[in-house]
């Protein structure tokens, strides 16, 4: 089991977790992900690693509560434990000294783009970040991204924070204004990534997106995460998750991501009606022994042996 040592909401539906996983913390590079299974009856879902700390052996995950599993996860607190956590999976981001890199984060995608932005900055690039969200309270990691950016642009659909508009408009504006851009990294909802690809394609600016197809094992064994890239079938889990945005078939990605829509809706409805059984399946750790700050938790079921 993998104890959660810290959990806090970044926005109403987005929660940040620090989880003990020393082997993964030591190994992970920007762009890689883990597969998580919360409890014995749970499904396996991929989550991109947002950060890690080798000194205390934790990795950071940022989760948007959309379906049943992510909503259950967002009910977990420090002292709860994730049953299975495996990684780091996928190929790391290709980090090099490109020159000027534009990093675009849409909604929770910011948490996935952030580690690569940090790596790009460390590699000596000029980093221009563009963060977008529907409304102010959904903008996340603003301070963290600001600290690693030479330039930061904030946009909201309703203008409640930063400029009113979409990230693609800002990107277009920068390009029209003569900013020379060598690489664009765009991570967010599929329609946003597709729109960014459409902006950069006529100018032939290399654009990278991180894809989020449905996965099971995450190690290349099942082929469920196959995506069409440049007319060829690729497995996002081992060939990606990052691909050349101009070659990705976003239409197929969207279709494949909605394959289990009915089952997902039913599972969520059952969970919302009564979250108790799932909550009870989640194990807990005697975290206070290792992390006094976490404090004792009252009334929790004892889990099995904890290991990182």
């Amino acid at each position: 089991m993998f104890p959660i040592v810290q959990a806090r909401f970044l926005s109403p539906d987005v929660k940040q977790f620090r989880i003990e996983a020393p082997r993964i913390a030591r190994k992970r590079k920007a762009g890689q992900f883990v597969i998580v299974r919360l409890h014995e009856y749970g499904e396996r879902i991929p989550l991109t690693i947002s950060d890690s700390d080798e000194s205390d052996g934790t990795i950071t995950l940022v989760v948007q509560g959309i379906g049943k599993t992510t909503r259950l996860m967002n009910q977990l607190e420090a002292g709860d434990a994730v049953l299975d956590l495996v990684g780091p999976l996928g190929e790391p981001s290709h980090v090099d000294r490109f020159g000027t890199v534009v990093v675009i984060g849409g909604g929770v995608g910011t948490a996935i783009a952030y580690p690569t932005a940090v790596a790009m900055k460390q590699a000596g690039n000029r980093v221009i970040s563009i963060l977008g969200a529907r409304t102010a309270e959904l903008l996340i990691l603003e301070q963290e991204v600001r600290a690693t950016s030479d330039e930061l642009h904030l946009l909201t659909d309703d203008g409640s924070r930063g400029e009113r508009g979409f990230v693609t408009q800002k990107l277009q504006e920068l390009l029209d204004g003569g900013t020379e851009v060598n690489l664009v990294l765009a991570i967010g909802p599929v329609p946003m990534m597709k729109a960014v690809a459409d902006v950069t394609r006529p100018r032939a600016i290399k654009t990278i997106v991180s894809l989020n197809p449905i996965m099971v094992d995450g190690t290349g064994m099942c082929g469920g995460c196959r995506v069409q890239v440049g007319g060829a079938s690729k497995f996002a889990c081992v060939d990606g998750p990052e691909f050349d945005a101009h070659a990705v078939d976003f239409q197929i990605l969207m279709q494949r991501n909605s394959l289990y829509k009915e089952q997902e809706r039913a599972a969520l409805a059952r969970f919302e009606a009564d979250p108790t059984p799932d909550r009870e399946h989640v194990a807990h750790c005697h975290l206070e022994q290792q992390h006094p700050a976490a404090g004792p938790r009252a009334g929790v079921r004892e889990g099995g042996e904890c290991r990182g």
Binding site: E43, K68, T69, V216, C222, G223, G224, Y260, Q263
Partner: peptide, 26 residues
Amino acid sequence: SANEFLTRVNLMKAYDPSHYDEPIYD
């Protein structure tokens, strides 16, 4: 793929949807 279909059914127990979360095409 057979690997995916069988993994969903066997390892993830998609044949028992009232207890297990991993979906499979109905």
